[in-house]
Amino acid sequence: MSDLKELYQDTILDHNKNPRNFHKMPDATLSLEGYNPLCGDHLFLYVKLDNDVITDVSFEGSGCAISKSSASLMTTVLKGKRVDEAISLFEKFHDLITSPMDKQPNTDGLGKLAVFSGVREFPARIKCAGLAWHTLKSALEGDQRTISTEQ
């Protein structure tokens, strides 16, 4: 049985209320807009790169608790990661929130991001949790267009 506490864990509520790295970054190497037209979740992601290493990440925007806390938590785990490490983290996170209900979710290597394991029980909310990560992946892969979860 899905319940409220599984989805809205304290960490999620905390990051929603006090988002980390929540600001513009004028000297960002990459910046990209992410938009989920169905919910109205809307964010701008900023990434600073030194060669192949992410040295800083920030975001701003508005959205539901799931999308905002997911973006906030994401920014806290990326600093110091190489681009390929970040992409691999995206894949692990994506698997976590979309894994079938009859399987134990795999949280290996996800650390505190594991708090989003409850999202897979709420299909309508998976795109909220994934928005920041999809935007990150596209930015790192050199995409210039606004990222929409409705594609």
């Binding site: 109205g40 539901c64 608790a65 799931i66």
Partner: peptide, 29 residues
Amino acid sequence: GVHPHDVGTFLDLEGIAIRTGHHCTQPVM
């Protein structure tokens, strides 16, 4: 301070079905 989709999911867990979103009227939003 609470996004409609969080309201919607919270109420759903209480057994209450409401609609959240732009209701296919984006110009109104």
